[in-house]
Amino acid sequence: MQFIDLQAQYQHLKARIDKRIHDVLDHGQYIMGPEVFELEEKLAEYVGVKHAITCANGTDALTLCMMVLDVKPGDAVFCPTFTFFATAEAIAFAGATPVFVDSDEDTFNICPKDLEKRIEHTLNEGKLNLKAIIAVDLFGLPANYPELERIAKKYNLKLIEDAAQGFGGSINGQRAGSFGDIATTSFFPAKPLGCYGDGGAVFTNNDEYAELLRSYRVHGKGTDKYDNVRIGVNSRLDTIQAAILLEKLEEFPNELESRNRLAKKYNHELQDIHHTPATPEGYISSWAQYTLVSEDRDEQMTEYREKGIPTMVYYHTCMHQQTAFSDLNYSDYDFPVASNLSKKVFSLPMHPYLR
Rank of each mutant, 00 (worst) to 15 (best):
T63R: 13
L64R: 01
L64F: 08
C65S: 11
M66V: 09
M66C: 14
V68C: 08
V68A: 15
L69P: 02
L69Q: 10
D70V: 06
V71A: 13
V71M: 10
A76N: 09
C79A: 13
C79N: 07
C79K: 04
P80D: 06
P80Y: 02
T81V: 09
T81N: 04
F82W: 07
F82K: 02
T83C: 12
T83M: 14
T83N: 08
A86R: 05
A86S: 14
A86N: 13
T87E: 10
A88G: 15
A90W: 02
A90N: 06
A90S: 15
I91K: 09
I91C: 11
A92K: 10
F93N: 13
F93W: 10
F93R: 12
A94S: 15
A94N: 03
A94I: 03
A94K: 06
A96P: 05
T97P: 05
T97K: 12
P98T: 11
P98L: 09
P98F: 07
F100E: 02
F100G: 00
F100K: 02
V101T: 04
V101F: 01
D102I: 02
S103E: 02
D104F: 01
E105S: 14
T107M: 02
F108T: 12
N109K: 04
I110Y: 00
I110A: 01
C111L: 10
C111D: 15
D114S: 12
E116K: 11
E116R: 11
K117L: 09
K117D: 13
K117G: 05
R118Q: 15
I119V: 14
E120M: 10
E120L: 13
H121V: 10
H121C: 05
H121I: 05
T122W: 02
N124Q: 15
E125G: 15
G126P: 06
N129A: 12
L130A: 06
K131G: 08
A132L: 03
A132D: 07
A132T: 04
A132S: 13
A135P: 09
D137N: 15
L138Y: 10
L138T: 07
L138W: 02
F139K: 07
F139E: 05
G140L: 07
G140K: 05
L141F: 03
L141E: 05
P142R: 08
N144L: 04
N144D: 15
Y145R: 04
Y145H: 07
Y145Q: 04
P146A: 07
P146S: 09
P146R: 05
P146E: 10
P146K: 07
P146I: 03
P146F: 07
P146G: 09
E147R: 13
E147N: 11
E147H: 11
E147C: 10
L148D: 00
L148Q: 04
E149P: 04
E149V: 03
E149Q: 14
I151T: 07
I151Q: 04
K153F: 03
K154E: 14
K154T: 13
Y155K: 05
Y155A: 06
N156H: 14
L157A: 11
L157Y: 05
K158S: 14
K158P: 04
L159T: 10
E161D: 11
